[in-house]
C-alpha cells in the first residue's frame, strides 16, 4: 500500500509530460505558427528560439494558459487529474511583477501566499538567487538585474513542476546567469520540466532540446 503523497511524487517523477498538439496562433491577420507539436518530459528542458516576432512569447503564454490557442491544445499529463494547468505552471514573463513600494521580502512573501506556500521559505529563496540579507530593502531600490533575481526567486517559493520562462536572463550578469542555470538544473533533477524562450544560451544540462520558430509568415 502506498500513501497518496508518495504516489503523487512517483507520477510526477515518471510520467510528467507536457504536450503541445498541433498548436496554431494568429495575431490579427498574421499567422505566427501553425501545426506546432512538441513534447517535454520530466527532467527535460525545451528552449524555444527564433527571430523577434516569431511567436515565442505567444507560444509561452498559450502554454501557461494566459491566452487561448487559435487551434490545437496543450496537455499536461502526470499531475493530479483535478488540477488546472495554470496551477502547475510558473510563468515568468518579460515583466518582473515586483512592487517598488513593498520591501523585497514582502514582495516574495506575497507571492508565497498567493501561489500556495509549497516551496522554499522567503529567506532561503532570496539566498538562492543572491539577494540574501536584502529582504528589508524597499524593492524600488533594486537595480534591474536585482529585480530580475527577485522575480526568479518567485519560482522557488512555490513548488511547481512546470517552469515557463520568457527571456529569463534579461539584465542578469554572468554570475547570476550561471546561478540561474544551476537553479534550472536543480529543478530538472527534481523531476520538473522547463519551457524557455531565449536568445542567450542557457546551460540547463544535458537534457536540453531546441525548438526553432521560423520567420513570421
Amino acid at each position: 500500500m502506498c500513501n497518496a503523497s508518495i504516489a503523487n511524487r512517483d507520477s510526477r517523477g515518471d510520467r510528467l509530460r507536457l504536450n503541445g498538439e498541433a498548436l496554431a496562433c494568429r495575431r490579427g491577420t498574421r499567422l505566427l505558427f501553425a501545426d506546432l507539436s512538441f513534447t517535454v518530459a520530466a527532467g527535460e528542458a525545451l528552449v524555444v528560439t527564433g527571430p523577434n516576432g516569431a511567436g515565442k512569447s505567444s507560444l509561452l503564454r498559450i502554454v501557461a494558459g494566459l491566452m487561448p490557442a487559435t487551434s490545437g491544445r496543450v496537455r499536461l499529463s502526470g499531475v493530479p487529474a483535478e488540477a488546472r494547468i495554470s496551477e502547475q505552471v510558473h510563468y515568468l514573463g518579460h515583466e518582473d511583477a515586483v512592487k517598488g513600494a513593498l520591501r523585497v521580502g514582502e514582495n516574495l512573501a506575497f507571492w508565497r501566499a498567493v501561489l500556495g506556500r509549497t516551496g522554499a521559505e522567503v529567506g532561503d529563496a532570496l539566498e538562492a538567487v543572491g539577494l540574501g540579507g536584502l529582504g528589508r530593502l524597499p524593492a524600488s531600490a533594486l537595480s534591474a538585474g536585482q529585480r530580475r533575481r527577485l522575480a526568479i526567486a518567485r519560482l522557488l517559493v512555490a513548488d511547481r513542476p512546470v517552469w515557463v520562462l520568457d527571456e529569463p536572463t534579461t539584465a542578469l550578469d554572468a554570475a547570476a546567469q550561471a546561478r540561474f542555470a544551476a537553479l534550472g538544473r536543480d529543478h530538472l533533477a527534481g523531476g520538473g520540466l522547463i519551457l524557455a524562450a531565449t536568445h542567450a544560451p542557457l546551460d540547463f544540462g544535458p537534457e536540453v532540446r531546441g525548438l526553432r520558430l521560423g520567420a513570421p509568415a
Partner: peptide, 14 residues
C-alpha cells in the same frame, strides 16, 4: 497589468 503581476497571479489558486 503593466508590471506583470496579473499574469503571475493567474497561476495562483484564486
Amino acid at each position: 497589468v503593466e508590471d506583470g503581476s496579473l499574469d503571475a497571479m493567474s497561476g495562483s489558486l484564486l
